[in-house]
């Protein structure tokens, strides 16, 4: 039952009511529950998918968009492998808040977290944010961009599968240097381990590999 090769944490964030829970439900259960109430705190779902014959377990954290749950949701950013930032294409304010969300991500998440921008609700007729505006924003901030409809199940599967594939690629390429770096230092002096100060601010997660100047756990 629990035979998976990779486990990734995916965290969804974004304003209240943009459809985070619906996206997760659609992907994990194939449902579109209408009249979904606001999420309290964080919800937690698991789905195992297959990528190239490998089982990948996705742990999906669906966070509450409301301000008063911020202190709960923020604590999940740090351990996330991927962050999905969601807005509602028919609601300008949810798009305007993206920069605030990005600031939060910068502050709390690891620097190498995979970031995906999602414009949800493309089934709606009353679009306010054109596709190219979302695309440009994503490009400017180094994110993937995808437009989805949880209601009509457009791109939802693709969104999560893409994330699973990318994270797997990342994990594979990260594995290699880790195992090759055990060569020993013969000359008998202390090798200082330099900070590669890629991790912003106060959350430096270091793994130290002897003789190898490296190491942020997310970047190595």
């Amino acid at each position: 039952m629990d035979d998976y090769k990779f486990l990734f944490k995916v965290v969804l964030v974004g304003n209240a009511g943009v459809g985070k829970t619906c996206l997760v439900r659609r992907f994990t259960q194939g449902l579109f529950p209408p009249g979904q109430g606001a999420t309290i705190g964080v919800d937690f779902m698991i789905k195992t998918v297959e990528v190239g014959n490998e089982k990948v377990k996705l742990q999906i954290w669906d966070t509450a968009g409301q301000e008063r749950f911020r202190s709960i949701t923020q604590s999940y950013y740090r351990s996330a492998h991927a962050l999905i930032l969601v807005y509602d294409i028919s609601c300008q304010p949810t798009f305007d808040c993206l920069t605030d969300w990005l600031r939060e991500i910068e502050e709390y998440a690891s620097c190498k977290v995979l970031r995906v921008l999602v414009g949800n609700k493309i089934d709606r007729e009353d679009r306010e944010i054109p596709t190219h505006v979302g695309e440009e924003f994503a490009e400017r901030h180094n994110m993937y961009y995808l437009e989805t409809s949880a209601k009509q199940s457009d791109n939802v599967e693709r969104l999560f599968m893409q994330i699973a594939e990318d994270l797997m690629k990342q994990a594979r390429s990260r594995d290699l240097p880790r195992y090759n770096s055990n060569h020993q230092n013969i000359n008998g002096t202390t090798t200082p381990i330099s900070d590669s100060s890629c991790c912003s601010g106060k959350f430096i997660n270091a793994i130290v590999i002897f003789g190898k100047p490296t190491a942020c756990i997310h970047c190595s």
Binding site: S71, I72, R78, F203, N205, V208
Partner: peptide, 27 residues
Amino acid sequence: DGICVIINNACRVLESDFGEILRQRLR
């Protein structure tokens, strides 16, 4: 939810504030 958040915070503090000091000393 509260318990989970405090555990998450504990991990962060242990890894950065606490572990970092140990790492510096060993370095």
